[in-house]
């Protein structure tokens, strides 16, 4: 195969781009859904177990785990194409982004109201997106495999499947730390990713960039806050705040 038509290449490139962005989008949407599901712990162990059992009994959980794992890998592979291969290049990007981010932060009393020197943050955020992506890759893979075993085997607890007791036990035993890191990384990575995705494909024609940025910020803090509360409940630091809904705790 020594001649590839340019159109074929262009089409393949487009496909990659769509899959890379699309997988990011799906993962982000999944993470919100995931947060709501795990959030069932806020109503107490009963609610959590009921939901888990339901998803497993109807065979929703098992294929989801497989699908998400696949999406996760695909996204990681395609998205990492954009990360510069050489250290020198990555350093260059970092220096540049830092400079742009610093520019205009210094207070200049004589500056006019029109000064063009405004800090630009998005470039630096991209670098953080890569960094968080790497962390997610490690911690996320671990987590998915762990849950995969939960869902499919009898390895932990007394029954096949996700169970509040085991979950809380292992979180309290120390998993709270990787989860906390993963949580922050995922929320940050996903929200900035969505913001980027929206501007890249031209949502700016409908919504101003500031508006998209605001939406992104609101989502970030909402899900981050929710995640923290969930994690605190899982870690047993606070009691489930919505327990009254189901009439009591365990």
């Amino acid at each position: 195969m020594n001649t590839i038509s340019p159109t074929t290449t262009a089409k393949r490139q487009l496909t990659y781009e769509v899959i890379s962005g699309g997988s990011g989008l799906f993962l982000a949407l999944f993470m919100w859904g995931h947060m709501v599901l795990v959030g069932s712990i806020l109503t107490g162990e009963r609610g959590f177990n009921w939901l888990a059992t339901m998803l497993e009994d109807y065979y929703i959980a098992q294929p989801t785990v497989a699908a998400i794992l696949l999406l996760f890998v695909v996204h990681a592979v395609l998205a990492s194409r954009k990360i510069p291969a050489q250290l020198r290049e990555r350093r260059k990007m970092l220096e540049l982004s830092k400079g742009l981010n610093r520019s205009g932060r210094e207070k200049v009393p004589s500056a006019s109201q029109f000064s063009p020197f405004h800090p630009h943050t998005e470039s630096l955020l991209w670098i953080w997106q890569v960094r968080t992506g790497m962390i997610i890759l490690v911690l996320g893979s671990f987590h998915i495999i762990l849950l995969g075993m939960d869902v499919l085997t009898e390895l932990f607890g007394t029954r096949v499947g996700i169970e509040a007791v085991t979950t809380m036990e292992r979180v309290q035993a120390g998993l709270w730390l990787p989860y906390a890191i993963l949580l922050v990384c995922v929320e940050f990575h996903a929200s900035i990713g969505l913001y980027r995705l929206a501007t890249k494909w031209g949502a700016g024609a409908m919504l101003s960039r500031t508006a998209i940025h605001h939406i992104e910020r609101v989502l970030l803090w909402f899900f981050l806050g929710l995640g923290v509360v969930v994690l605190l409940v899982l870690a047993g630091v606070i009691p489930p705040p919505l327990a009254f809904l189901l009439g009591g705790g365990s």
């Binding site: 742009l100 630009h120 470039s123 991209w126 960039r209």
Partner: peptide
Amino acid sequence: IGLMACHDI
């Protein structure tokens, strides 16, 4: 990759 620096600068 959507860095947006161009637009700001």
